[in-house]
Amino acid sequence: MAASLYLTLYTWNLRTGVLDALAANTGLEFVSWVLRPGKWAADKATRLWDDYFHLVDVQQDNRRLAEAVDKLSLDLAALREEAAEAVRLRKLLDYAPPLSWTVQGARVIAHRLGPAGALDTVLIDKGGLDGVDVNVPVATPGGVAGRVLRAAMQASTVLLVTDPNSKIPVVSRDHRTTGILSGQGAGEELEVRYVPLNAPLDVGETLVTSGLAGIFPKGLPVAVVSGIERSDISLFLTVRATPLVDYNSLEEVLLFTRAPGSEPGQDPESLPLVPPQDNATIPAPVPAKPAPAAANATAAPAKPKPAAGAQAPKPAPKPASAKPQDRPAPGN
């Protein structure tokens, strides 16, 4: 009797997610409120300590930063020119306008908690009231951190890239080789699956999100290829990658939510990583390295129409036959 009642409850929740939402909006919310003050106090104390020691080298830092600003200003001017050119070319090709994403910052409150914390996750202080929902991409200025697995009102659980259940469609920045990036556990290297044996790929090449599943914006850096092995018995290369983010010391993250009016999966266009600007809406500009238009053809509904006389874009390497698993785990 009790067993059948339990099974009914369990399967009903798997189908509807009602109890998960209830637990998130009560339990997770309560936990976030318990941890928040302590975390705030610890951050303040750490910052005070750091500021004191940083004052010692502040002049040297100022000089170094001023030089960096000069260099970045030059880079910015050059990139602005390229961005303007890309907009003109896009218009020329009648290309669909890119999606707009809203970027907001969030603070990491805790890592995995409790006996049901079987997955590699972190708890952040933004939730449904801030527009955060399941599958919202999470990144840092260094690279992708993961995606939201469960959202309460003012807190969310983020599944990290290192978890074996995290699967992200990626493309190599230089050779445009596609694959599925999968975690191997905390502290371990990542694995890129379904990379064909003859695919061009170099060690040291940066892997960025391909935007194929319509969850992550295209062009966010995720990892760097650290090893490539050719197997005699497999149709695919064995590719290892090092994550760009130190997941053990995550303190602040960026959340990418879609701006109102943009539908998921419509057009996962390029988006460079930018710092948070108090919920600023960022029209996705040009990526650091422009991708061939067809690289995202499977996900973009609007096909680029080549202008008269223009050469058709070269088709990108076919993505892996495996379907990217970007949906959350059942019930989550």
């Binding site: 109890l19 209830l22 997770l28 006996p115 914390g117 997955l119 469960r150 659980t157 059942p330």
Partner: peptide, 18 residues
């Protein structure tokens, strides 16, 4: 149960059995 399920990452139900 509510607290642990909320902060966990599995679907609701494991903590009841636990």
């Amino acid at each position: 149960i509510v607290l642990q399920e909320g902060m966990g990452s599995l679907a609701f139900g494991s903590l009841i059995l636990w």
